[in-house]
Amino acid sequence: MSSSAMNKYWIPHLDIHKKVITQELQYYLGPEATVRPFTREGEDGFLITTPGPCLTDEQIDDICVKSKEMWERQAAARASSGSEKPLKRPLHRPVVISKAGSGGGSSGSSRRRKDDRWRSDDRDRRRA
């Protein structure tokens, strides 16, 4: 069916999990129906494109129930995996490079100046 004959409907995202509506939409509206995130007048939701009518109230209620179940499963999975999986924070431990007043900061800046002189000398040699 051509896209000009398709109907477009917007529904708010409230209580609807994107994965659930994506999985369920074609079951309710047929294989040509599509859904994508869409913002209408500043409110996030879903744009449904279908050759027929949009979802009924009962179908939207069913999607909301399945969405709630999905969020509960995800929360339970996060809670159970959190106790088994160690934090990665030891990998992100800060390493002191220099501290103010320790004298370490000036040697780093003088080294940088020496490197800059070397680079400029090298550039001059290449030009010649």
Rank of each mutant, 00 (worst) to 15 (best):
Asp121Gly: 07
Pro86Asn: 08
Asp15Pro: 01
Ala79Leu: 08
Ser2Val: 14
Val95Phe: 10
Ser109Phe: 10
Ser106Ala: 07
Phe46Trp: 03
Ser106Phe: 00
Thr56Leu: 05
Gln74Cys: 12
Lys99His: 09
Gly30Asp: 03
Arg119Gly: 06
Ala128Asp: 14
Arg93Phe: 08
Arg40Ile: 11
Gly52Tyr: 09
Ser120Trp: 02
Ser106Leu: 01
His17Gln: 13
Ile48Gly: 00
Arg89His: 10
Arg126Cys: 10
Ser3Glu: 12
Glu43Lys: 13
Arg111Ser: 11
Leu47Ser: 07
Ser2Glu: 14
His92Tyr: 15
Arg112Asp: 06
Pro37Asn: 13
Ser120Met: 12
Trp71Met: 12
Phe46Met: 00
Glu69Lys: 13
Asp44Phe: 03
Ser107Val: 04
Asp61Val: 10
Arg125Cys: 05
Arg40Pro: 01
Lys19Arg: 11
Thr34Ser: 09
Lys99Tyr: 07
Gln74Val: 15
Leu14Gln: 15
Leu47Phe: 00
Trp10Met: 04
Thr49Ala: 12
Asp124Gln: 11
Pro12Asp: 09
Ala79Trp: 01
Lys88Pro: 08
Ala100Pro: 00
Lys114Asn: 06
Glu43Cys: 08
Asp116Gln: 14
Glu43Thr: 14
Met6Phe: 15
Gln26Asn: 04
Ser98Ile: 01
Gln26Pro: 02
Arg119Ser: 12
Ala79Tyr: 03
Gly82Val: 00
Val20Asp: 01
Leu91His: 06
Ala76Gly: 10
Ile21Met: 02
Phe46Leu: 00
Val95Asp: 07
Pro86Ser: 13
Ser98Trp: 14
Ala128Pro: 01
Val65Asn: 09
Ala79Ser: 11
Asp61Thr: 15
Asp121Glu: 14
Ser98Lys: 02
Asp57Arg: 07
Ile11Ser: 03
Ser109Trp: 13
Ser120Gln: 08
Gly42Gln: 04
Glu43His: 11
Tyr9Leu: 11
Gly42Glu: 06
Ile48Glu: 03
Thr49Cys: 05
Asp115Leu: 15
His17Tyr: 13
Ser109Cys: 08
Arg93Met: 08
Arg123His: 11
Lys99Gln: 12
Thr49Arg: 02
Tyr9Arg: 10
Ser110His: 03
Thr39His: 01
Asn7Ser: 11
Asp122Gly: 06
Glu24Pro: 02
Val96Pro: 04
Arg125Thr: 07
Glu69Val: 13
Arg111Asn: 05
